[in-house]
Amino acid sequence: MDIAPATARTELTFRDATGDDVPALVRLVESAYRGDASRAGWTTEADILHGRRTDADGVREVLAVPSGRILVAERDGDPVACCQLEHRGKAAYFGMFAVRPDLQGAGLGKVVIAEAERAAREGWGVREMHMTVISVRAELIAWYERRGYRRTGELTPFPYGDERFGVPQRDDLVFELLAKDL
Score class of each variant (00 low, 15 high):
residue 37 A to H: 06
residue 109 G to C: 00
residue 36 D to R: 06
residue 168 P to M: 12
residue 133 V to F: 05
residue 22 V to L: 11
residue 81 A to D: 04
residue 135 S to N: 13
residue 65 V to T: 14
residue 119 A to M: 13
residue 44 T to Q: 04
residue 175 F to P: 04
residue 163 E to V: 10
residue 137 R to F: 01
residue 35 G to Q: 06
residue 52 R to N: 12
residue 174 V to L: 14
residue 41 G to R: 00
residue 99 V to H: 02
residue 64 A to Y: 03
residue 180 K to D: 03
residue 158 F to C: 04
residue 50 H to P: 06
residue 132 T to V: 13
residue 134 I to T: 02
residue 110 K to D: 15
residue 140 L to R: 00
residue 38 S to V: 04
residue 54 T to Y: 01
residue 161 G to C: 10
residue 162 D to S: 02
residue 89 G to K: 07
residue 168 P to K: 06
residue 129 M to H: 00
residue 44 T to W: 03
residue 159 P to N: 04
residue 150 R to L: 12
residue 50 H to K: 11
residue 52 R to S: 14
residue 165 F to V: 02
residue 173 L to F: 08
residue 98 A to Q: 03
residue 126 V to I: 02
residue 178 L to D: 01
residue 104 Q to K: 01
residue 166 G to P: 05
residue 137 R to H: 05
residue 113 I to S: 08
residue 114 A to W: 06
residue 14 F to H: 07
residue 66 P to F: 06
residue 85 L to T: 05
residue 123 G to M: 01
residue 78 D to I: 15
residue 36 D to S: 10
residue 83 C to L: 08
residue 109 G to W: 01
residue 167 V to Q: 13
residue 31 S to N: 11
residue 139 E to S: 07
residue 176 E to R: 01
residue 167 V to T: 14
residue 57 D to N: 15
residue 123 G to E: 00
residue 5 P to A: 12
residue 125 G to W: 05
residue 62 V to Y: 02
residue 119 A to T: 15
residue 66 P to T: 05
residue 92 A to G: 08
residue 105 G to Y: 01
residue 48 I to M: 14
residue 7 T to K: 15
residue 8 A to H: 14
residue 125 G to C: 05
residue 150 R to C: 10
residue 170 R to F: 12
residue 87 H to K: 05
residue 137 R to G: 01
residue 18 T to R: 10
residue 3 I to T: 13
residue 86 E to F: 00
residue 133 V to E: 04
residue 117 E to I: 13
residue 107 G to T: 08
residue 169 Q to F: 08
residue 170 R to E: 11
residue 108 L to M: 03
residue 61 E to K: 08
residue 160 Y to M: 04
residue 142 A to E: 08
residue 69 R to E: 02
residue 21 D to L: 08
residue 56 A to F: 09
residue 132 T to P: 04
residue 15 R to M: 11
residue 25 L to M: 10
residue 179 A to F: 06
residue 12 L to R: 06
residue 110 K to Y: 13
residue 136 V to L: 03
residue 36 D to W: 00
residue 26 V to W: 07
residue 42 W to L: 03
residue 57 D to H: 14
residue 1 M to D: 11
residue 39 R to N: 09
residue 15 R to D: 14
residue 84 Q to C: 12
residue 112 V to T: 07
residue 46 A to D: 15
residue 20 D to V: 15
residue 156 T to D: 15
residue 140 L to M: 11
residue 154 E to S: 06
residue 8 A to R: 14
residue 7 T to S: 15
residue 1 M to S: 15
residue 86 E to C: 10
residue 19 G to Y: 09
residue 135 S to K: 11
residue 57 D to K: 14
residue 69 R to V: 00
residue 70 I to C: 00
residue 143 W to I: 02
residue 135 S to H: 13
residue 125 G to P: 04
residue 176 E to I: 11
residue 93 Y to F: 12
residue 65 V to Q: 14
residue 2 D to F: 14
residue 5 P to N: 12
residue 78 D to E: 15
residue 25 L to F: 07
residue 52 R to A: 13
residue 73 A to N: 03
residue 14 F to T: 07
residue 182 L to F: 09
residue 129 M to P: 01
residue 91 A to L: 01
residue 112 V to M: 07
residue 72 V to Q: 03
residue 43 T to K: 13
residue 17 A to F: 07
residue 68 G to Y: 00
residue 5 P to T: 10
residue 163 E to Q: 11
residue 9 R to N: 07
residue 180 K to M: 04
residue 102 D to E: 14
residue 109 G to Q: 03
residue 171 D to E: 15
residue 139 E to Q: 09
residue 98 A to T: 02
residue 154 E to P: 01
residue 26 V to K: 09
residue 126 V to M: 00
residue 175 F to I: 07
residue 95 G to V: 10
residue 182 L to N: 11
